[in-house]
Every structure is written in C-alpha cells, then in structure tokens.
Design a protein around this nucleic acid. Structure first.
Lengths: 153, 153
DNA sequence: TCATTAGTTCATAATTTACAGAACCAAAAT
DNA sequence: ATTTTGGTTCTGTAAATTATGAACTAATGA
C-alpha cells in the first residue's frame, strides 16, 4: 500500500471537502483513501497504516462509514480480514440527499411565512419566489435524471 | 421585539439547519431571527436581546454574515443605529453556491480518476457515471432556471 | 492449550469552538 | 468637556470534538 505524493494530497483535499460536509477528519480521510488508492479494497491495518491513525480511530471511522452506508466490505474464505471499499451505489444517494435537503428547506421556509406577519406583502415576495423555485427543482429532478440516462446511451 | 413561542422554536429549527450547513450556532440563530421576526429589519441591540447573546457574540455574528453577504443593513438620517436584514438576493446565490459545490466535486473526482490507477476499467465506471451526472446537472441548470421563470408568468 | 490475529471499548489527553465579560474606541449628544 | 451611544476587540474559559494508547475480547491457528 504505497501512495504517491499526488494521491496523498488528493486524500487531504477530498478529506477537507468532506469535513465541510460534516464528517470527522479521520472519517473523511478514510473515505478519501478508499477513493484514491489504486486497489479497490483495503484492510483495516492497511487503512490504519496508510493514514497513520490509531486502531481505535480506524475502528471508529470504519464503523461510522459502515453505519451510514458509505462503505461496505467483503471477506474471502480462509482470510479473517475484512476488505473495505466505497459503496458505489452511494453516489446517487448523495444527490438524493442533497435534494431531500432542499425539500426540507422549502417546508421550513413555508412555515416561516405562516408564522411571521410582516405588514407589507412585498416583504414576503422574494421568499415566496425562492420557495417556488425550490419546489420547481424538486419536481423537475426525476425527469432530469431520466433525461441524463437517455443522453448517455 | 417580542417573539411568539412559534417564532422562537422556528428560529431554533432554522438555526440547527444552518449549523449543519457549517454556521456557528449564534450566527445561525441571528439568521433565523432576521428571517422569522415580524419586522424586516432589526438593530444590534434588538438582536442581542432577542437571542440573549452577548454583545461580542452579536458583533461577531453580524460581521460574519455581512462578510459572507448573507445580510446587509440600512441606516436612517439622524439615527446612528444600523438596521440589519437578510439579503434577499442571497436566495438565488444560495442555490448557485450549491451548484458550485457540485462543480468542485466533479473536478475533484476527475482528478481522482487521473491519479489513481486501478487495473480494471470496471472499477472506474461508477465514478465516471457520477461525474457525468454532475456535469449534466451543471449544464442543465441555467435552462432550468429559465424554464422556472417562464412557468411563473 | 497457548499464541496470534483482527479488531472493539474505555479512559483520558489534546485540540478546537464558541461564547461571555470587560476593557476599549470613535462619533455624536449634552 | 464629558457623557452616552453603538458598537469592536481582547482575554479567559467551558464545553464539545477528536484522537490516542492500553486493556480487552472473540475467533483462529499452531
């Protein structure tokens, strides 16, 4: 498990990106490693070593990622080790989650409009616009995905 | 500046939402307050009082939000106070930023493909799919926004 | 049966964050 | 001239986060 300079710095960059998405540093690095390394699957010890993190940090990170469905593992007969890899189906889930987030925001903002009482309707106009936009995006998303699939064939 | 129970709990809920978007708790609450309160603009002291946060926390939060372009203020002749409000243009910027994020992710993942060398091309297929999808979304976004605008008229 | 492997769990240390409180400052009011 | 207003900046710290290392465990192997 040797990594080039490029790979190491890409792991860091991806790590920081995922920290901004709310992952713990070590967890984000493990994702980065599994994404960037040449081999599609790595063992517990390889991960721990490659990132120079303790066994407990490795254990914590892997279980975190297993629980949230970001990684999975396979085993091989006569080999007690688990081989961890990024769950590739998760890419589409990533996008679905972003859309769910927008959907939640939309309902939140609708409740804001219900609760606050501004004296002039003009104060609500922009917010109404944005809500309408969010809802439009949400509605159009399935057909967009469909279009993309067609465009690939 | 009195707030109903509903308003207070909605400020909290919006606050938690924005904490998940990487804002500090107090900063997120200030956004929530300016969004949810009946009056479209509030002063420094009103914000500090309504949220029961110190002057320093208020100052920090307001400057944070001013710098990131999330709020703005007006003043009135003969009144030294500043009146802070949510920058309404920022709703569209919010969405643009989400798209920029996807765009950054796409380039990051392309670099991953450049850097890692997996022995079988099948290992790159899913990632290529996702990149293609992200790029498709980015490309379609302007026309989607246009369509939405037409649909409103 | 004893040692090794592949991890997990726990206590705790190190770092980071987020805020309060007090001192401070410049402009305006008295 | 000095007091008040509308903040800002600095220092300390409580709390939360994140990681470590050591002790532990359950399964396998010798």
């Amino acid at each position: 498990m040797t990594l080039t300079e490029q790979q190491l710095s890409l792991i860091e960059e991806f790590g920081v990106y995922q920290e901004n998405n709310g992952f713990q540093p070590a967890v984000a690095r493990v994702m980065g490693l599994l994404l960037v390394c040449d081999r599609p699957e790595l063992t517990f010890d390889e991960i721990s070593e490659a990132l120079s993190i303790s066994k407990s940090a490795t254990s914590n990170a892997l279980n975190m990622l297993l629980n949230t469905g970001h990684i999975e593992y396979t085993t091989f007969p006569g080999d007690r080790k688990r081989y961890f890899r990024i769950k590739s189906s998760n890419w589409s889930e990533f996008f679905v989650k972003k859309m769910d987030d927008l959907s939640y925001l939309s309902t939140l903002l609708k409740r804001v409009l219900d609760v606050r009482k501004r004296d002039l309707p003009i104060y609500d106009a922009k917010l109404n616009d944005f809500i309408s936009f969010l809802d439009y995006m949400k509605d159009r998303m399935p057909s967009l995905i469909e279009e993309w699939q067609k465009s690939r064939k």
